[in-house]
């Protein structure tokens, strides 16, 4: 059990992120949950690369045991890509706020339903 502690922490963070994404209607809150989920994936990748007694993978003559550098590289890429997608998601949220006046999922669905009912009554908009 104790050997798998890092995986359990990862799963806990992942699930909290997933829960925020599913349960909260606010778009910005959903994006925060998505970034929590993403951070748990960083942990999932980096934790197995650690070795007891190892040091950071910067070569020096006095050390011989290093942590695995490959997950670090992959996660560096993932962090930068994650911030780019977060920025794109926030831009979409701001745009939705411009169009609907709200960023709550329920209210947006309600507005969409109202528009549909209106179109059925009066025909499609030009």
């Amino acid at each position: 059990m104790i050997e798998h502690f890092s995986y359990i922490v990862t799963v806990f963070l992942m699930i909290t992120g997933l829960f925020i994404v599913m349960a909260r209607g606010n778009l910005i809150k959903k994006l925060i949950g998505l970034s929590v989920f993403q951070t748990s994936v960083y942990l999932l990748y980096v934790a197995p690369g650690k070795l007891v007694g190892g040091t950071a993978p910067i070569l020096a003559p006095q050390y011989s045991v290093y942590s695995n550098p490959l997950p670090h590289v992959l996660i560096l890429t993932a962090i930068v890509v994650g911030v780019a997608t977060l920025a794109l998601g926030l831009a979409l949220a701001v745009r939705i706020r411009e169009a609907y006046g709200t960023i709550e999922e329920d209210e947006i669905t309600e507005l969409d339903n109202k528009v549909e009912v209106l179109e059925e009554q009066t025909g499609p908009r030009p």
């Binding site: 910005i28 994006l31 925060i32 970034s35 951070t39 960083y42 980096v46 934790a47 690369g49 650690k50 190892g54 040091t55 950071a56 993978p57 910067i58 290093y66 942590s67 997950p71 670090h72 996660i75 560096l76 962090i79 930068v80 994650g82 911030v83 977060l86 920025a87 926030l90 949220a93 701001v94 706020r97 960023i103």
Partner: peptide, 30 residues
């Protein structure tokens, strides 16, 4: 603590810095 110093530096700068600024900017508009 997991020896990933490069990743930690990027996470502190990008995850805690840039992301927070972006989120605050979006909050300012919503």
């Amino acid at each position: 603590a997991l020896d990933a110093v490069d990743v930690a530096m990027t996470e502190a700068a990008v995850g805690a810095g840039v992301s927070t600024v972006l989120l605050l900017g979006a909050l300012h508009l919503c």
